[in-house]
């Protein structure tokens, strides 16, 4: 991540990691989670769900900081994140 000014205690800050879970068949493809993710870790998948929408998919696993914004902005109860010790390796 690029900062215009690096905080002095940047090495001491323990960054939380999150793991995003997506319930494909609840998604209606509005893209709000993708657009408003502060770390831009999501993108549309090429897969169709049962309703014919493209649900999101995680592109940068390691960058999720478990802020839950995708979870709270989602109108469909289709995405949520949980805190993990280490970013998942996929």
């Amino acid at each position: 991540m690029n900062f215009w000014r690096v905080p002095l205690d940047t090495n001491e800050i323990d960054v939380v990691h999150g793991e995003v879970h997506i319930i494909d068949d609840r998604c209606k493809g509005c893209g709000y989670c993708i657009e408003f993710c502060p770390r831009h870790i999501l993108e549309f998948s090429l897969q169709f769900n049962a309703k014919g929408y493209h649900p999101p998919v995680v592109k940068n696993f390691k960058d999720c900081v478990n802020c839950h914004y995708c979870e709270v902005i989602c109108p469909e109860f289709a995405i949520f994140s949980v805190e993990v010790d280490e970013p998942p390796v996929v």
Binding site: H21, I22, I23, D24, E43, S45, L46, Q47, P55, V57, V58, K59, E71, F77, A78, F80, V82, V90
Partner: peptide, 20 residues
């Protein structure tokens, strides 16, 4: 091209599942 794999989704539940 990325997909959401099945086993990845089975783990935890949506935190509001109990209320819907």
């Amino acid at each position: 091209m990325r997909y959401n794999s099945d086993n990845f989704m089975k783990k935890p539940e949506h935190p509001l599942n109990g209320l819907i």
